[in-house]
Design a protein around this nucleic acid. Structure first.
Lengths: 241, 241
DNA sequence: CGTGTGATTGACAACCATCAATTCGAGTGG
DNA sequence: CCACTCGAATTGATGGTTGTCAATCACACG
């Protein structure tokens, strides 16, 4: 254990991790090269197809994972089938929950998702050893809390038009690769049905609001999924942000 | 044996802390008697009157505090005045945020609130020294995240009637001292206006739904604030929980 | 008694959900 | 290549839930 820490090779980053974003912006940034080496030996890369549930990634047979690419939606469902998306996670977010969870959330791949996943035990051990890692987890959960609360305002107090604009703005600022802060261009990671479940609306209302934004020139759409926003500030205005 | 140890060392617990619930269920449970002593010397007890903002307790001149009694509401407001309560905190919750906050939340006393507050620097130092404390903070923030997500389902997918029932159920299970899990009896900590802001409704709708529950015999109300719930399971049913 | 704040109740309108029909796009097979 | 199918998305017509505006009530306080 301590011998490993002092290993003369400990400045070498494991191959698997070298190009990984999680090492910079994600939780792995809290790990030493030696710890990364230990963890990477137990890590497996997995591709999860869009629309498949990732139970087993979370609660029960709990494992943890970093999102390498793609979008994961966290959903809650009522007994009668009503559904609400309570969170979206993007690369390089960390998936999975230390300790028990009071509430039941289902994780599902919204798009094809690449994961780097670890056995629960391995990471739990590492959490105990490394306060830095725990700090990172605390920071991510505080960020998620902020996001959840921002969205509560959207759900509780915004009109359908504002909700849809808010959603597009959220996606634009989270996925767009070009992101010059003026314009955006991206593929929607969610279906209309997903968007409705995220916004607490119906698919018909979502569709009508999107049409409204398109006719107003705020957005352009091709193939139902490809979106262009010529002026993000106009979109933000529609979202009342 | 552990209980015995606790009793023996009880004499080392600072006077201020002896009867404090935060030592058992709150973050102070993570501190050693020595740490408690250090912290308690810098702690001050404060009474905050209902309806007064507790800015200064959070972000800017940030301090931290434990809630000893009362209810604190966390609110967000839009530029045009629309408002949403994004969280309620009860004793012995911890108030305040380590690190910076991405979003702006205002804390306000819903009822008269008793606080045990510390200077930011003192607790920040202690966080660095004590992984246990950081762990407690992580656990509380994960709990808050669960609560926020539960509430997102309520905000996005429940009807006005279900929302009001959900709210009453939430309060009943958080405040009622008798709490025999069958019946409940309590003082509402929020005004109708607060309830509306919590549920994403108007005060009129809240009032109508409360009247509906009263006429259906699910609840009894006196003085606008005193509520009795003869059968909590009936209330849960109305809330679709 | 008046005044003020919070809560209730009523009448009406608006927004969004529901139900239904149509269009669009991507596969599939004749 | 076209016809067919299937799911997703759009569009339209209508109704219901909830918001808005307004009046009244209840209670506390000067």
């Amino acid at each position: 254990m301590d011998a490993q820490r002092k290993d003369i090779h400990n400045s070498e980053i494991p191959v698997l991790c070298r190009a990984c974003e999680a090492r910079h912006r994600g939780v792995c940034g809290a790990l030493s090269p030696a710890q990364l080496t230990v963890l990477s030996k137990q890590a497996t890369r997995r591709l999860v197809a869009a629309r498949s549930e990732m139970i087993g990634e979370r609660q029960e047979t709990g494992g943890y994972a970093n999102i390498l690419s793609g979008v994961v939606k966290l959903t809650k469902m009522m007994a009668d089938g009503r559904q609400q998306i309570v969170g979206l996670q993007f690369a390089p977010d960390f998936l999975g929950r230390p300790f028990r969870s009071a509430s039941d959330v289902t994780a599902e791949a919204a798009t094809d998702v690449n994961l780097c996943s670890f056995p629960k035990a391995a990471l739990d051990r590492m959490i105990k050893e490394s306060p830095e890692l725990e700090r990172k987890l605390l920071e991510q959960s505080l960020d998620e809390l902020d996001e959840a609360r921002d969205w509560m305002l959207t759900l509780g107090r915004k009109t359908a038009a504002e909700k849809v604009a808010s959603f597009l703005y959220l996606i634009a600022t989270n996925i767009d690769p070009s992101s010059d802060l003026e314009t955006a261009r991206f593929e929607l990671p969610l279906t209309r049905s997903d968007i409705a479940d995220f916004l607490g609306l119906t698919i018909e209302t979502v569709s009508r609001q999107i049409t409204g934004l398109r006719k107003a020139g705020i957005i352009r759409i091709a193939n139902n999924r490809h979106v262009e926003v010529p002026d993000l500030s106009l979109l933000a205005e529609r979202a009342s942000i």
